[in-house]
Design a protein around this nucleic acid. Structure first.
Length: 210
DNA sequence: CTCCCGATAT
DNA sequence: ATATCAGGAG
């Protein structure tokens, strides 16, 4: 790890702490799984509004497994992509009930075999639930990792491999959590607040704002 | 590569 | 009007 990388991680730790916080409200692993499926191209704030009532109406995995498709579509409509998400959630819930005794699996292979669960969602579960060192590459991580000069890739999987080489393993999970906060507060996709940024002197972004 | 798609900020 | 939001599947 370079001195510069170490300094960036140190400042992220100092600014945002080292706790594994989660922006998607949930009480169980399967609730987090469904929340992450819902979060595709949708703000976590919106997902939390939806799951607030959703998890009371469907309070077990079995209820999601036996849900009426059209009704579930309406229940999650405001998160967007609701046809696909509803179909995937029902299929995913059925697989968990039938093949996994209602438990959420912990390996990348098992997780990504579930409907609606791709690499990003699987890594959120691995990190947040099982504390398995895993790097989540979402829209924030991709954008900010490029600005910080940790990668030049556009493909999320290539970004993930680049970050594995750059970041120490004990920061893999934390990096994603801190970067989401950073992306929400300072390093926006549009018009980042570079003048107020605590990483400004270390940043290699070409789209810096004055 | 394209499609899925509503809510919000700019 | 357009960009963006904790992406995934065909």
């Amino acid at each position: 790890m370079t001195k510069r990388t170490a300094e960036i991680l140190k400042r992220l730790d100092e600014t945002y702490g080292t706790e594994y916080i989660c922006y998607l409200n949930h009480e169980t692993p399967w609730q987090l799984l469904i929340a992450v499926i819902l979060s595709a191209q949708c703000t976590d704030a919106r997902v939390n509004i939806v799951t607030e009532t959703l998890f009371k109406k469907y309070d077990t995995l079995e209820k999601f497994a036996n849900a009426d498709l059209a009704e579930l579509e309406e229940d999650i409509r405001s998160t967007g992509f609701y046809h696909n998400k509803a179909k995937n959630i029902i299929s995913c819930a059925r697989t968990l009930v039938q093949e996994y005794h209602g438990e959420v699996p912990s390996t990348l292979e098992e997780l990504t075999s579930l409907a609606g669960v791709g690499r990003k969602t699987a890594n959120v579960i691995r990190g947040n639930i099982y504390h398995d060192p895993s790097i989540v590459v979402d829209t924030h991580v991709k954008r900010i990792s490029k600005r910080l000069g940790f990668t030049k890739e556009d493909d999320p999987v290539k970004v993930e491999y680049d970050l594995m080489k750059v970041l120490p393993k004990d920061h893999w999970i934390l990096y994603n959590i801190q970067i989401i906060t950073f992306g929400r507060n300072i390093c926006f996709a549009r018009g980042p607040k570079c003048s107020e940024c605590f990483l400004q002197d270390l940043c290699k972004a070409e789209d810096k704002r004055k």
